[in-house]
Amino acid sequence: MNSFSLRPALPSDLDALTRLEQRCFSSDRLSRRSFRKWLKRQHAGLMVVEREGELGGYALVLLQPGTRLARLYSIAVDPGFRGQRLGEQLMDAAEEYAHQERRLYLRLEVRKDNPAAIALYEKRGYRLFGLAPDYYEDHQDALRYQKRLHYQPANAEQIHLPWVQQSTPFTCGPACLLMALAALRNQPADTTEELLLWREATTIYMTAGHGGCHPMGLAIAAHKRGLNASVWCNQQGPLFVDSVRDTDKKRVITTLHEHFARSCKAQQIPVHYQDFTAYDLDSAIAQGKVVLVLISTWRLDGRKAPHWVAISGSDEECFYIHDPDPGEDQVPLDCQHVPIAREKFEQMRKYGQAKLRTAVVLGG
């Protein structure tokens, strides 16, 4: 093993990486185009081990922007060099890269029928936290493992919250509400129900495209479906009017806001005109409630868009979110129980010039 050296991959490694991938895998291969992309990407670490100019293996780690999460996307050791502990050397490098990038967790997927790899990961302190059925091209399941890199493992208060992917660009709120309904009432997710929820809760207009969902609108829709709901908002008056310039659109948004406020009052849905603090969020999670929080996506994808996420747990360092909208180069697994450092989350949950902070708290 001492004869092998570890270094970052270079564009000149492209051909060798492609050949190595062909030798190591019969399916689920990374393409030459993919390797070229990862060699250029800012939020990725691609490392190789080599001896006398010959590649013995590689590890690819992706960093999820705006979070404290890294993912071991792929790792491979040339069959001709196995038995020389190159896998462990690459794992060391992957963990060190994630650590240097200040990630709290490194996550990975492994085939359920690969006991050697599973044994290696568990030996290194990785803990099983999920199953992804039918994950690989041959329909084999994947086991999901993670390792806490910076601190000792914490006892996260975690709700069993099923994840739901939004089916349109504007139904993040309804998708999050479907998660709550699945957790609290065992109601399966349904695209028709998602769209109906949006029709009930939408503001109609936003800066571009269809309008998102008003917190009171989501609370009313949840109440109608048998959940206890309350709204927390740090400001009174119409929400989201700053996101449009047209006077007629502002009037529509204002009309809907007033309707939602009257409906909440008539249905005795509590509306608290104050900030929902981190302490309140921890308390709600401890009581088994599901909290939907409006965030700005700026720190996730560089766009200042309002976006609803569901909170799946918390610990001393992080809040964990279910994000219903996989971004570019993400798979659904990347959007579940995403750890966001508490100080970062406080920054994310402010939207717009008015620094709107709002949440919908749901119970069974």
Results as ranks from 00 to 15, higher is better:
residue 205 Y to E: 13
residue 231 V to G: 09
residue 193 E to V: 13
residue 203 T to I: 15
residue 188 P to A: 14
residue 286 A to C: 09
residue 202 T to M: 04
residue 283 S to W: 13
residue 213 C to H: 09
residue 248 D to R: 07
residue 284 A to W: 04
residue 215 P to L: 14
residue 263 S to I: 08
residue 265 K to H: 15
residue 244 V to M: 01
residue 201 A to N: 10
residue 228 N to M: 02
residue 260 F to M: 07
residue 279 Y to I: 15
residue 243 S to V: 03
residue 275 D to Y: 00
residue 280 D to E: 10
residue 249 K to D: 06
residue 281 L to E: 03
residue 281 L to G: 04
residue 267 Q to T: 03
residue 211 G to C: 12
residue 209 G to A: 11
residue 188 P to F: 13
residue 240 F to P: 00
residue 265 K to I: 11
residue 228 N to F: 00
residue 282 D to K: 14
residue 271 V to Q: 01
residue 191 T to R: 08
residue 282 D to V: 04
residue 234 N to H: 06
residue 222 A to Y: 00
residue 232 W to G: 01
residue 246 D to R: 01
residue 238 P to E: 13
residue 244 V to I: 05
residue 195 L to Y: 07
residue 202 T to Q: 10
residue 214 H to R: 08
residue 210 H to Q: 15
residue 188 P to G: 05
residue 259 H to D: 06
residue 200 E to N: 08
residue 224 K to V: 00
residue 243 S to W: 06
residue 195 L to S: 02
residue 214 H to G: 07
residue 247 T to D: 11
residue 256 L to C: 04
residue 257 H to L: 00
residue 283 S to K: 09
residue 276 F to I: 08
residue 276 F to E: 01
residue 225 R to K: 13
residue 286 A to Q: 09
residue 196 L to Y: 13
residue 234 N to Y: 09
residue 282 D to W: 10
residue 284 A to L: 03
residue 189 A to C: 04
residue 278 A to W: 08
residue 256 L to Q: 02
residue 284 A to V: 00
